[in-house]
Simulated assay, not measured.
Amino acid sequence: MKIDPRGQRFSAALATIVLLVVLATGSWPVLAAQAVVFAIGVFFGLRHHPYGLIYSRFVRPRLSPPGELEDEAPPRFAQGVGLGFALVGVAGYSLGIEWLGITATAFALGAAFLNAVFGFCLGCEMFLIIKRVSPKKKEVHA
C-alpha cells in the first residue's frame, strides 16, 4: 500500500508533542496511550492509525495532492520501533525505574522529532538497511 509521506510527518509531530508531555510529567499512562497508538499502526496498518485518521480527515483535504506516495512498510516498521521504546518506557516508569522510562521515552522522542521537523524517518532507514543486508530468498523452481 502507498501512503502520503506528509501524513507520517504529521503523525510524528503529534507523537513528539505526546512524548514531550511524558518527559515533562513522567506519566506512564500517557506513554501507554502512545504505545497503543503505535501498536495500531503496526498491527492494523497506517490507514487505521489514530493520528493518520486525523490527518486524512482534517489536514489532507486542505492540501494539494502529494507529489509522490511511499511504501507503507518502512513507516509501519518505524511504528514498531516506537512501540518497542514506548513499552520499555512504560515498564520503567510503572516499575519505578525512572531513568529507564526517561531514556526510552527520549529515544522515541528523538526519532519522532527527526521525522516531524526534518522528514528523516530513522525507523524507515533502519528498515531499508535491514532489508539490504538480509539474505535474499532463493526461488525454488518445480
Rank of each mutant, 00 (worst) to 15 (best):
F44K: 15
G110R: 12
I17F: 13
S56M: 08
V18P: 01
V37P: 03
A104K: 15
I130W: 14
E70H: 06
A104C: 13
P50Q: 13
G92F: 04
D4A: 09
L53G: 03
A32K: 04
T105K: 11
E70S: 10
F58E: 01
A142E: 11
A24S: 07
V21Y: 08
N115D: 13
V37M: 03
V117I: 15
G96E: 09
L114E: 08
C121I: 09
G101S: 13
L14T: 07
A32Y: 15
A106L: 10
I54R: 10
S64P: 10
P74Y: 00
V140Y: 13
V42T: 07
A116I: 06
E72M: 06
R57M: 03
R60Y: 00
E98C: 00
G101R: 14
L23C: 08
C124M: 01
Y93D: 02
G84Q: 10
A12I: 02
A35S: 12
V18K: 04
T16A: 08
V90C: 12
F43I: 09
V30H: 04
T16Q: 05
G82T: 09
A13D: 01
L122E: 01
P135T: 07
W99E: 11
Y55G: 11
V42D: 03
Y93G: 05
G96T: 14
R57A: 12
R47Q: 09
D4I: 07
L53K: 14
R132I: 04
L100R: 13
F43M: 09
I40S: 04
A116P: 06
I17Y: 06
H141M: 11
P50C: 07
F77N: 03
L128M: 14
Q8F: 00
G82K: 01
V140S: 14
P65L: 05
R62S: 12
N115T: 15
L109N: 08
G67I: 05
M1Q: 13
E72N: 08
A116W: 02
P5N: 11
L46V: 06
V22R: 04
R60C: 00
R57S: 10
E72W: 01
L20P: 04
V22G: 02
G26F: 00
A15S: 13
A112Q: 09
R6W: 00
A78T: 05
P66S: 05
L23T: 12
A13Q: 03
A91Y: 12
H48T: 12
I97S: 07
A78V: 04
G45V: 06
I3D: 04
V59F: 00
V90R: 14
P75L: 05
H49Y: 01
S11W: 06
L23R: 11
I97F: 09
V18N: 02
A111C: 15
V90N: 11
L87I: 10
A91E: 08
L31Y: 07
W28P: 05
C124W: 02
L20Y: 03
G52V: 02
E72S: 12
S94F: 00
G80L: 05
R132P: 03
L23F: 01
A112P: 10
Q8C: 08
F77P: 03
P29S: 08
G80W: 01
A112T: 12
A32T: 15
P75W: 01
Y55C: 11
I97V: 15
L122M: 13
A33D: 10
